[in-house]
């Protein structure tokens, strides 16, 4: 089993390493990720939401729905724990 795991891991790793060759360099200001969607968040956050912390403005407003989902995830976790291991005194 361990051998199988090791082989699987090495294969996946090699594949991943192979994939990195085409990636934009780390910290490259001209990578597509920095050019396509995000500039608006940076440039318009004060105008559109009056929140200086861009992370907050994106988190809670531009992608606020994701955050609702995230809160629901953690809510789910709590309910799951209650359902699974909490004992209710009769």
């Amino acid at each position: 089993m361990k051998l199988v795991a090791l082989i699987a891991v090495c294969l996946t790793g090699a594949l991943l390493l192979y994939g990195t060759t085409d990636m934009p360099n780390w910290g490259d200001p001209n990578s597509p990720a920095s050019l396509h969607v995000s500039p608006r968040y940076i440039e318009k956050t004060m105008e559109e939401t009056a929140v200086p912390n861009m992370v907050t403005s994106v988190l809670a407003d531009y992608r606020g729905y994701d955050t609702l989902g995230e809160t629901t995830v953690i809510f789910t976790a709590a309910i799951a724990c209650i359902l699974l291991i909490r004992r209710f005194s009769p």
């Binding site: 995000s38 440039e43 004060m46 861009m54 992370v55 988190l59 994701d66 995230e70 809160t71």
Partner: peptide, 23 residues
């Protein structure tokens, strides 16, 4: 505000969500 002055906040936001999912 120019875009090159600040880091890209979007991955940070995504990862906040991912951390919550992780925990």
């Amino acid at each position: 505000i120019e875009a090159f002055q600040y880091m890209n906040p979007l991955p940070h936001v995504l990862m906040l969500t991912a951390i919550v999912v992780m925990v």
